[in-house]
């Protein structure tokens, strides 16, 4: 240090420099991610205690509740009914979404496709429509007295799961198609060419050559869809006023919103949120481990 003289003393030591550059990101991350998470955890361990009629001054206090809030939140059968609905929704949406996205991508990747650009854009375009707008639009189309389409009866009744999944599918398939299409474009032409020389038909090339090669992209798309499934909220919330069949706890996220902002019970909403976040994280990690581990294994060897 002494060698550098006066000039060096004013400068921060070399070990500090990276932290200086990181500081803004760390500050923002702490302020807007870590602190809210910590506060949510804090809220989830507390509850409100009212005394008497609850009308006097200071009759409402926040007390420590430990895991009681969690017991309460997890013990509500509505939460699990909602979780079941989401599972059903996912079982419906994920395969359809991936199947259609892959189908469209393979079709567009065929040599000499007519109207490729137009088709690609029109399949992708719904992704640019905000979820609320898409739900309002489809909601109107589902209402028997208003729709110009020959929609089946009861879409906003017993067929609700299909109605909601359809909106998600309509909005998401274009994006996933693009992810897969990009991967398809990266497949070296020699591979398909040699398959063709070996006498493979276009269908065989698509199924036996291209599809295995884009498995990583499929997994990516699958992961996105899975997370979007667990977070489904906009579509059912927007459709709810249009039908009797959609309670305010239709999905766990709707329950969180209603607990916090309609029932004014922020503590139970916080507890449910923590549980949901843990479940989503576990789901994603397990999915990545099981599926991706298998798919990428071939690549490494």
């Amino acid at each position: 240090m002494a060698r550098r003289g006066d000039r060096g003393a004013a400068r921060p030591g070399p070990a500090l420099v990276p932290y200086l550059f990181l500081a803004p990101a760390i500050v923002l991350f702490t302020l807007f991610v870590l602190v809210p998470i910590g506060y949510t955890a804090y809220l989830s361990l507390h509850r409100v205690r009212v005394s008497g009629l609850g009308l006097g001054r200071g009759s409402r206090t926040q007390v420590f509740a430990g895991l009681d809030t969690y017991r309460q939140a997890l013990g509500d059968p509505e939460l699990w009914r909602g979780a079941l609905r989401v599972l059903g929704y996912g079982a419906l949406l994920v395969p359809t979404m991936l199947g259609l996205a892959l189908l469209f991508a393979l079709l567009l990747d065929r040599p000499r496709v007519r109207l490729a650009r137009f088709s690609r854009i029109s399949i992708f375009l719904p992704y640019a429509v905000p979820g609320v707008v898409a739900s309002v639009l489809w909601g109107f189309l589902y209402l028997p007295a208003l729709t110009p389409l020959p929609v089946p009866e009861g879409l906003l009744g017993p067929g609700l799961l299909f109605a909601v999944a359809n909106i998600g599918l309509w909005g998401g398939v274009g994006f996933n198609m693009l992810v897969i299409l990009t991967a398809l474009r990266a497949v070296p032409p020699e591979v398909t060419e040699s398959a063709r020389l070996d006498g493979a038909s276009e269908l065989q090339i698509a199924l036996r050559v291209k599809t295995p090669l884009v498995t990583p992209a499929l997994i990516m798309a699958g992961l996105f869809t899975l997370i979007a499934t667990l977070q489904v909220y906009t579509e059912p919330t927007t459709l709810a006023p249009l039908t009797n069949a959609l309670p305010s706890t239709w999905t766990p996220l709707m329950k969180v919103y209603n607990d916090a902002f309609v029932r004014d019970d922020i503590h139970s909403a916080a507890a449910t949120s923590v549980v949901l976040a843990a479940i989503t994280l576990t789901f994603s990690l397990v999915f990545l481990r099981v599926v991706a581990g298998r798919a990428f294994a071939g690549e490494r060897s």
């Binding site: 009629l53 039908t243 009797n244 069949a245 029932r263």
Partner: peptide, 17 residues
């Protein structure tokens, strides 16, 4: 009462069902 919001939400869910 002090929790009309809860009663109202229960109305929507229970009568819808």
């Amino acid at each position: 009462g002090p929790n009309v919001n809860v009663a109202y939400q229960a109305y929507r869910d229970a009568f819808g069902a």
